[in-house]
Structure formats: C-alpha cells, structure tokens
C-alpha cells in the first residue's frame, strides 16, 4: 500500500454514505437502462434510499406552513432535491419493469377472426422476456418480491386474455405460449451479445478476448470501450467496469 492508496482511503471515508449511495444509485440506473438483460436488484441500496426519501418527506410536511422566508427557501431546495431523487428511483424501476414486460401494449391490437394467426404470432413475441425471466431461476432471483409478483400476475392475466380472445380457437397443440418443440423455442431471451458502451473503473489484468474473432484488448482504468455485453457482464457485476 503506497501513499496514493492511503490518500484514496482517507478521501473515500470522508465522502458521506448518502453521497456514495447517490453515486451507486446513478450507476445502477444508467446500467439498467443500457444493459440488454435485467440486472440484480440492489435491495439494500434501494431500501436505504426509500427510507431517506420517506424521512425527508416527513421533514417537509413538518416544516410546511412555516412562513419565515428563510426556512421557506430552504424548504424549496429540499423539495427540489426530493423530486430529483424520486425521478431517479422511478426511472430505475420503470426501466426494470419495461424489461419484465416488453412491448405489452401490442396486445391491445390483437383481434380475432382471420387475423388471429397474425395476432398469435405477435402475442408470442409480446411477452418475450417475461417467460424467459420466469423460466430461468438465475434471472428470476434478480427480481425483487414486488417485481416478481407483478410479473407473475401480469403474465397470468395476459395469458387468460389471449386464451379467451383467440387462443381457444386454435388446435390444442398450438395453444401453448412456451412451446419449445420443433427446434424453435417460443421463449425469447434477450440478446446478450448486444454492443454496449463501458468505462473501465479498475485495471483488468486478463486481456478481453472474444472467442471466434481475433479481437483482444487490455482494459485500463479510465478507458471507454464498445464491447459485447456478454464478455463484460461479469466485470460489470464485480464493479471493474461500468456501463455508460
């Protein structure tokens, strides 16, 4: 450990927990918005943030009605920041829900009769990631309890709706939405090879190699790369690189 490390340690300890949490929240928000798959739910972080937001709202409620202009201005600042935080949390959760049920509004257009074939094909595409999440335990564990509840109920409702509007007219063997027969799986999973932008936070000693191509790079702190999500997903989880 040299002097730089000691300085870094001192510097980090002087940063309050709130600021570190804000940074962590910003990072998971950006990551969730750009990563092709759903990421692990940061439960402790969200719990702390929600608790702080709750306390701050209480504080604002207690202070409202105080007509002293000085307190009033401070309250404006506090409320402005509160709204910023709420936006961050809301946008983060929305990004996750969007991945859970992607393109769900398409189902509004499904009609019966001769177009049912088309709507059925669409229907299979609609809930693409919902089934993937439900059927893959490793991915399923990343959801929070309310998210899992939402996903299960949403899926049940949607399935019931499809069944009553057009699926019941189909032959029995074609009614399933999670058919994997015939070599083609109806369960669509996210494309983990999608290109993403990453920033390297810590030097990575092993050069990054993609099997099947002759590309190989060494990740140095501060670098920005465009890479396939699949080759960096572990580094993202460990915090060596961040998605931008």
């Amino acid at each position: 450990m040299d002097i730089d490390d000691i300085l870094a340690d001192v510097g980090r300890d002087s940063i309050p927990q709130e600021t570190r949490d804000l940074q962590a929240l910003t990072r998971v928000w950006v990551a969730e918005r750009v990563s092709p798959e759903i990421l692990a739910y940061p439960e402790a972080l969200l719990d702390r943030t929600m608790e702080r937001i709750r306390r701050q709202i209480e504080h604002v409620e207690m202070q409202t009605g105080n007509m002293d202009p000085k307190t009033n201005f401070r309250l404006i600042v506090v409320q402005t920041e509160l709204e910023r935080f709420k936006f961050l949390v809301r946008s983060f959760l929305r990004a996750r829900i969007a991945k859970i049920t992607r393109g769900v509004f398409l189902s509004c257009f499904s009609v019966g009769g001769e177009r049912s074939c088309l709507s059925a094909r669409r229907a299979c595409q609609i809930d693409k990631h919902a089934l993937h999440i439900l059927t893959t335990p490793a991915v399923r564990e990343r959801l929070s309890t309310p998210e899992l509840q939402y996903l299960t109920q949403h899926h049940a409702l949607q399935h019931a709706h499809f069944l009553s509007s057009f699926l019941r007219n189909f032959p029995a063997q074609l009614q399933r939405l999670d058919d994997t027969a015939g070599g083609i799986s109806m369960i669509d999973s996210p494309d983990l090879d999608t290109a993403v932008f990453v920033r390297v936070l810590r030097d990575v000693e092993e050069p990054l190699v993609i099997a099947g191509t002759d590309a190989s790079v060494v990740l140095k702190r501060g670098d920005v790369w465009v890479v396939r999500y699949s080759v960096v997903s572990e580094l993202v989880a460990e915090g060596d690189v961040e998605l931008i």
């Binding site: 450990m1 730089d4 490390d5 300085l7 870094a8 340690d9 510097g11 980090r12 940063i15 600021t19 570190r20 940074q23 910003t26 990072r27 920033r199 936070l201 810590r202 030097d203 702190r221 501060g222 915090g239 961040e242």
Partner: peptide, 16 residues
C-alpha cells in the same frame, strides 16, 4: 487525469 484508483468497492467516476 483520474484520482488514484480506490482499493475498496467504491470507485468514483463521472459525474461524481
């Protein structure tokens, strides 16, 4: 230039 790399879990990056 970046600040010295942190050894712990926290690593600062823009906009922080």
């Amino acid at each position: 230039p970046l600040p010295p790399p942190a050894t712990g879990e926290a690593t600062t990056s823009p906009p922080f």
